[in-house]
Amino acid sequence: MGTREPDAANPEFLTVEEAAVLLRVNRKTLYESIRLAQVPGVIHIGRSIRIHRDALLAWRPGNGGPALGENR
């Protein structure tokens, strides 16, 4: 697989809202998962949060761990 150039349709970094749509989860659930450090590729820029698209797409949360947003 080669390196893909980011464009307007596929930006390199996503907002939490964009990542939630991509993962098909509620935005609040994703915020809680980020707070619990369950999501890879998260970058805090001031008060903003961005998520690296490739890290998110490569991430495969397993059934052995807690569900998104669940603290076990």
Rank of each mutant, 00 (worst) to 15 (best):
M1Q: 06
G2T: 11
G2D: 11
T3K: 12
T3W: 13
R4Y: 10
P6I: 15
P6Q: 11
P6M: 15
D7P: 04
A8Q: 12
A8Y: 10
A8E: 14
A9N: 09
P11A: 15
E12I: 07
E12M: 13
E12C: 11
F13P: 13
L14N: 01
L14V: 07
T15I: 04
V16F: 05
V16M: 03
E17I: 10
A19V: 06
A19E: 00
A20V: 05
V21C: 05
L22R: 03
L23H: 03
L23P: 02
L23C: 10
V25D: 00
N26H: 04
R27I: 06
R27P: 01
R27T: 08
T29W: 09
S33I: 09
I34S: 04
I34Q: 04
R35M: 05
R35L: 09
R35S: 06
L36A: 02
L36H: 07
L36R: 02
L36F: 09
A37Y: 07
A37Q: 12
Q38I: 10
Q38T: 06
Q38C: 08
Q38E: 12
P40W: 03
P40A: 04
G41T: 02
G41Q: 03
V42G: 05
I43Q: 14
H44K: 10
H44R: 15
I45W: 03
R47C: 12
S48M: 14
S48T: 14
I49P: 01
I49D: 07
I49V: 15
I49F: 10
I51E: 05
I51P: 05
H52V: 09
R53H: 01
R53W: 00
D54T: 09
D54I: 09
L56F: 02
L56D: 05
L57E: 05
L57W: 00
L57H: 01
A58W: 03
A58R: 08
A58Q: 07
A58L: 08
A58V: 01
W59N: 02
W59G: 03
P61E: 07
P61Q: 05
G62K: 00
N63G: 15
N63W: 01
N63T: 11
G64H: 03
G64L: 02
G64Q: 08
G65C: 08
P66E: 07
P66S: 12
P66C: 07
A67H: 08
L68E: 00
L68K: 01
E70P: 00
E70L: 08
N71S: 14
N71V: 13
R72W: 11
R72D: 06
